[in-house]
Structures are given as structure tokens and as C-alpha cells.
């Protein structure tokens, strides 16, 4: 089932000349795990803002084309309505946690919708359990580690029960352990609840095994849209300055010297397995 349909989308921010994104055509189905990547300033964040209606409702500028989320055209529906379809998680958890305790943070979004108290309580409990953050319930944001903060930020949009979760570099402010916790959480949401994931991420080594599709952007346009192994076996990522995971680099080098494998290693673990087999 098609959840996101972007047709010929271009956007130019107010007071700028160049469009931040142009001629974007993208269709995403339910349950997909899409990795969106590209050099900084390529328009990834702008594309994310288009998905829940922040563009055109919150940011001024000129928008062309249409974004249709689960049947709703973002031009015709306000952000709070779209927010129930698309949960947006940002880079800095500090700016997403506005309450003084975790429970309140989770309740914030459904409270805004005016849902009955029992329903809010139910959603908060479910989400706390799902993300295994029940023990943090009464903590203030500054008492949490970076990874915990970002998981609470994810939880705080999940209480709106979105079908789609868009995460804009959710791990770039985190240490490796925190990043891993967050990425595992995202994977779990995708696998167990069939939440469609669009993830902007630079730690490709960690995330590539989970993804079903890689979308590569450069200078405001989509230049590649393929399954992960295909995407990184082409020369395009390196040309635009996207870091190719070590495992795939190794794979490519081994191919050059004439070795043959039956699958492409997407993670360091895969690569290790392949190598042990070869070396036997």
C-alpha cells in the first residue's frame, strides 16, 4: 500500500534564490525502511519538513508539486492532522523535550489533541513499555543520557500513533552506545509494528543491514533510489562524497582481485562472516 506519494516537488525558502529541493518524485510503501542520505546541504532536512506539512504551513517559501500522505494532501491539511500520520524526530533531543518529566513529555502530543484522559494514560503506558523506558518515567530531561533522551523524543511522537516515522539525523549528537540503542529502537518499530521508517543517517555501518531501500540526494535532487547493496556498489555515493561502509569497500576490493561471493556484506558482522568463509 502506498503511504507517501511525492509528485514533482520543489521548494524554495523565502529570501533565498536557489530551490532547496527540486523535481522530487518519490513513492514509499507501507512498512518500508528507507535510508535517506547525501552530503550536508543536499536538501534532506527540507524533504523531511515537507512530509508532515511543516512545509508549507510553518516555513514560508514557494512550493510546487504535491505531497500526499496516506491520502491527505499536505497543502490542504494542517500540521496537527498530518502529525498523526507522520512523526518527526529531530537531531537535537534537547530541543524536543519540553516537559520536566518523561511521562508528561509522552502525554504532551495527545493532550494537544484533546483526547480523553484514559486514552492518553493508555497510550503513554503502551509507549513506555514498547520502548522499555518505564524506569525513566519520572525523570527530568537533564537527568537522562543522550540515548535515553532521543528514545524519549521518539516515544513522544509515537503517542500520536503515526504510521510513518521520519528521523532527521537522530544519532548525530549521541555517543556510539546511545546511537546503537536508538537505531535498535527504530528497527524494532519497523519490524514489530510495521511502522514505515524514513531515516537520515550517516552511520551507515550500523544501519544498512536494517534498510530496505537507499535514497541518495545531491544538490536538492534524488540521484539514486535502490536497494542498499545496489546503491553502494555503484560509484555514485563516492562521487558525491557519501561515505561507503567499510564492509562494502572491502567487498568491492575483493571483487577486483577476482574473488566471488554469493551475497553483499552490509555490515561489519556480515563482512567478518564472509571473510572467515573465504579464508577456510
Amino acid at each position: 500500500m502506498v503511504l507517501i506519494e511525492i509528485k514533482n516537488l520543489s521548494f524554495t525558502y523565502a529570501n533565498t534564490e536557489e530551490p532547496a529541493i527540486k523535481n522530487i518524485d518519490l513513492t514509499i510503501n507501507e512498512g518500508e525502511f528507507v535510508l535517506l542520505t547525501g552530503p550536508s546541504g543536499c536538501g534532506k532536512t527540507t524533504l523531511c519538513r515537507c512530509l508532515n506539512g511543516l512545509i508549507p504551513h510553518f516555513y514560508n517559501g514557494e512550493m510546487e508539486g504535491d505531497v500526499i500522505i496516506d491520502g491527505l494532501n499536505t497543502k490542504e491539511h494542517p500540521v496537527y492532522e498530518l502529525a498523526q500520520k507522520v512523526g518527526l524526530v529531530f537531531q537535537d533531543p534537547e530541543n524536543q523535550l519540553v516537559s520536566l518529566n518523561v511521562e508528561k513529555e509522552l502525554a504532551f502530543a495527545p493532550e494537544n489533541l484533546g483526547l480523553p484522559r484514559e486514552e492518553i494514560r493508555k497510550r503513554v503506558e503502551e509507549t513506555l513499555q514498547l520502548l522499555k523506558i518505564e524506569h525513566l518515567r519520572h525523570k527530568a530531561p537533564y537527568e537522562l543520557s543522550g540515548g535515553e533522551q532521543q528514545r524519549v523524543a521518539i516515544a513522544s511522537v509515537l503517542t500520536l500513533k503515526p504510521k510513518i516515522l521520519v528521523l532527521d539525523e537522530p544519532t548525530s549528537n549521541l555517543d556510539p552506545k546511545g546511537a546503537e540503542q536508538v537505531l535498535k529502537t527504530i528497527k524494532k518499530l519497523n519490524e514489530e509494528l510495521n511502522v514505515t521508517i524514513i531515516l537520515i543517517e550517516h552511520r551507515l555501518d550500523l544501519i544498512l543491514p536494517y534498510t530496505s531501500r537507499v535514497v541518495l540526494m545531491d544538490k536538492g535532487e534524488i540521484i539514486l533510489d535502490a536497494p542498499p547493496y545496489e546503491a553502494f556498489c555503484s560509484s555514485i555515493p563516492e562521487e558525491i562524497g557519501v561515505d561507503v561502509p567499510v564492509s562494502i569497500k572491502l567487498y568491492n576490493e575483493l571483487l577486483k582481485i577476482g574473488m566471488k561471493f554469493n551475497k553483499v556484506p552490509l555490515s561489519t558482522k556480515d563482512a567478518a562472516e564472509l571473510l572467515t568463509e573465504v579464508l577456510k
Partner: peptide, 12 residues
């Protein structure tokens, strides 16, 4: 922060 509030149905 405003962006994040907006994305969580603030003022719905």
C-alpha cells in the same frame, strides 16, 4: 523547539 512543538500537534 517550535518545529518540534508544531510536529506534536501543539495548539491543535
Amino acid at each position: 523547539i517550535a518545529e518540534s512543538l508544531e510536529s506534536r500537534a501543539f495548539g491543535a
